[in-house]
Structures are given as structure tokens and as C-alpha cells.
């Protein structure tokens, strides 16, 4: 059983990363934790309303959620769970605490794709990776996109209008 952390920017590439990860580690059971980093607000009013502010959940679209469910159904015997958590803060201590709290065994990071900023206060995780005290695996997500016989993740993501 492995707890795998995958940083996400809510795009189709994150879904490809999940698929690539599962394909690589499907020998055992996996708990997949999608993580998106958000910086802490720096004004006192925003801090006071911090726990009340649910804007971050608007980042998760219905399509993204459905695509995650599709992947989970596709690898039902391997994937025990796919959860999504936000990490608040951008320091290495926050990152280490986050990894510790979620019992992360492995971080999977896309090797040939740069994560985008999903919103204005998204945090760039790549700079924090070197402070992690667990294994980091960089997987390639740029697969054979041109294969006409395959339905790509990008085609799936349009699903459920």
C-alpha cells in the first residue's frame, strides 16, 4: 500500500500524470492524493475570513472530478482512493508537515510538463520538492497523443456538459 502525492493544476495533464503513475506502480494498492498549493493570504481581513472563504473549491470543475472518477473506475482494483487537498502556505516546513500529516511515501511529478498557476495565489510546488524527505519520481506524461485509435484524456475531460 502506497500513499502517492501528485501535485495538480486541475488540467488534463494532471489526469495524464495520474494514469502514468498508476500504470507504473500498479503492482500494489495505491492511495492517491492530489495536492494544490495556495499561498496564505497576507492581509488581516483575508486571514480573518480565511476559514469561511470557499473560493478554492471553484477550481475543481465538474469535468475534472468526473475524469478522476473515470480513472478510479478504470483502475478500481489498484486505486483505493483519489482525494484532493489544498496545501496552504509556501514554505518548506509547511510542505514537510503536509507530507508528514498525509503519510506520503512517494511524490510523483510530471517530468516534461510545467504545472500552471490555476489561480492568482497558486504556489509553484517544484521549488519545494528538494525539501521533501521521501522519494520523488518524475514521470513522462507526453504520451503518443497522435494515436488515432485512442481516446485521450483531453477528449474525456470535455465529458458531461
Amino acid at each position: 500500500m502506497k500513499n502517492i502525492l501528485i501535485p495538480t493544476d486541475f488540467t488534463v495533464h494532471s489526469l495524464d500524470t495520474i494514469v502514468a503513475t498508476v500504470e507504473k506502480y500498479k503492482a500494489g494498492q495505491l492511495h492517491i492524493l492530489l495536492m494544490h498549493g495556495l499561498s496564505m493570504p497576507d492581509s488581516i481581513t483575508e486571514l480573518m475570513m480565511f476559514s469561511r472563504n470557499n473560493d478554492r473549491y471553484k477550481l475543481i470543475t465538474k469535468e475534472f472530478e468526473d475524469a478522476c472518477k473515470i480513472i478510479k473506475n478504470r483502475y478500481a482494483s489498484v486505486i483505493q482512493s483519489i482525494t484532493l487537498r489544498f496545501m496552504h502556505g509556501s514554505t518548506r516546513h509547511v510542505f514537510r508537515n503536509f507530507l508528514l500529516a498525509n503519510h506520503i511515501d512517494l511524490i510523483v511529478f510530471p517530468a516534461d510538463y510545467t504545472l500552471q498557476k490555476a489561480c492568482d495565489n497558486s504556489v509553484d510546488i517544484s521549488g519545494l520538492l528538494k525539501y521533501a524527505r521521501c522519494n520523488i519520481d518524475r514521470v513522462s506524461v507526453r504520451q503518443d497523443q497522435g494515436d488515432v485509435q485512442r481516446i485521450n484524456m483531453a477528449d474525456l475531460l470535455l465529458a458531461v456538459g
Binding site: D66, K69, I70, N73, R74, V148, Q149, R150, I151, D155, L156, A159, V160
Partner: peptide
Amino acid sequence: VTIGVASTDDRVL
């Protein structure tokens, strides 16, 4: 022409 089938928790696509 490619046909794919996938399913979420309550719909089959």
C-alpha cells in the same frame, strides 16, 4: 473514427 467508453460513479459515457 474512435469510440471510447468510460464511466463515472453514476453515468456511463
